[in-house]
Amino acid sequence: MEKIYGAKGEQNGLYRIGRFKWEVIYGFGKDNENDETGYNYRLQYSYRPRLENIKKDIIETVNEIVRDRILQGMRFRGHLVWLNAENQRNYADWYGLAVISDSNLPVTVKLGQDEEPVEVTFNTLEEITEFYEAVANHIRETVTTGWQMKKNINWEEYEHEKD
C-alpha cells in the first residue's frame, strides 16, 4: 500500500473509483503531530478485491510499518539507532559478553546516519545495559503496537463498497 498525503482522518473502506477500478484505504497517520493533515494508506485494484485479499494487503502493510519503526524509529541519547537484523544480533551478543565478563568492555557502537555517524562507547556494564534495554524495549513496544493495530482493524468496513 502507498501513503497518500492530504487526509484529515481515517477513511477506511473499499471504494469503487471507476468502471474497473477499486481502492482500499486504511489507517491515518501524520509525519509530524503539528501538521494539519496526514496520510492514509491506499491500494488500487483493477478488479473488485475479496475480503481475503484486502486482509492480506492490510496486514502486510501493518507488518511493513512495524519493520520500518523497528529499523529506524529508535533514538538513543538523541541519535538514530539503526536496528537491522545484524545490528540487533550484534547488540545482543555484545551485551551478553559484557554480562559474562567486564573484560569484554568497552564496546563502541556507531549511531546516527552514514553521513554523520556518531560513535558511542560503553565502558561499564551499566552503560551497555541501559543501551541494550532501550533497544529491547523499543522492539517490544513496536511489536505490541503492531499487534494492537491489527486487533483494532474493523474488517466490516471492507466488506461492502462505499460511496
Rank of each mutant, 00 (worst) to 15 (best):
V24L: 13
Y26S: 05
Y26V: 10
Y26T: 14
F28G: 09
F28E: 03
G29M: 10
G29A: 14
K30W: 06
D31V: 05
D31R: 12
N32T: 08
N32W: 10
N34D: 12
D35N: 15
E36M: 07
N40L: 03
R42T: 15
R42M: 11
L43K: 15
Q44M: 12
Y45N: 13
S46W: 02
Y47P: 00
Y47E: 11
R48D: 11
R48V: 04
R48G: 08
R48H: 10
P49I: 11
E52F: 06
E52V: 15
E52I: 14
E52K: 13
E52D: 15
I54Q: 11
K55Q: 15
K56F: 13
I58P: 05
I58R: 03
E60I: 04
E60V: 04
T61D: 05
T61E: 10
V62G: 07
N63A: 13
E64V: 03
E64N: 10
I65G: 01
V66N: 03
R67P: 02
R67Q: 14
L71G: 00
Q72C: 00
Q72M: 01
G73A: 00
G73K: 01
M74R: 04
R75A: 06
R75F: 10
F76A: 07
R77Q: 11
G78E: 02
G78A: 02
G78K: 06
H79S: 03
H79E: 13
H79K: 14
H79V: 01
L80H: 07
V81C: 06
V81A: 05
L83W: 06
L83S: 02
N84P: 00
E86S: 02
N87W: 01
Q88T: 02
Q88N: 00
Q88G: 00
Y91C: 02
A92M: 09
D93F: 08
W94F: 08
W94A: 10
Y95Q: 09
Y95M: 12
G96Y: 01
G96D: 12
L97S: 06
D102P: 08
N104E: 04
L105G: 12
V107W: 06
T108M: 00
V109G: 08
K110N: 08
L111D: 07
G112R: 05
G112K: 03
Q113A: 12
D114P: 04
D114C: 03
V120L: 15
F122R: 07
L125E: 04
E126L: 02
E127K: 04
I128L: 09
T129A: 02
Y132P: 00
Y132F: 10
E133G: 00
E133N: 03
A134Q: 07
A134Y: 01
V135N: 07
V135K: 06
V135F: 06
A136Y: 07
N137C: 00
H138R: 05
E141N: 14
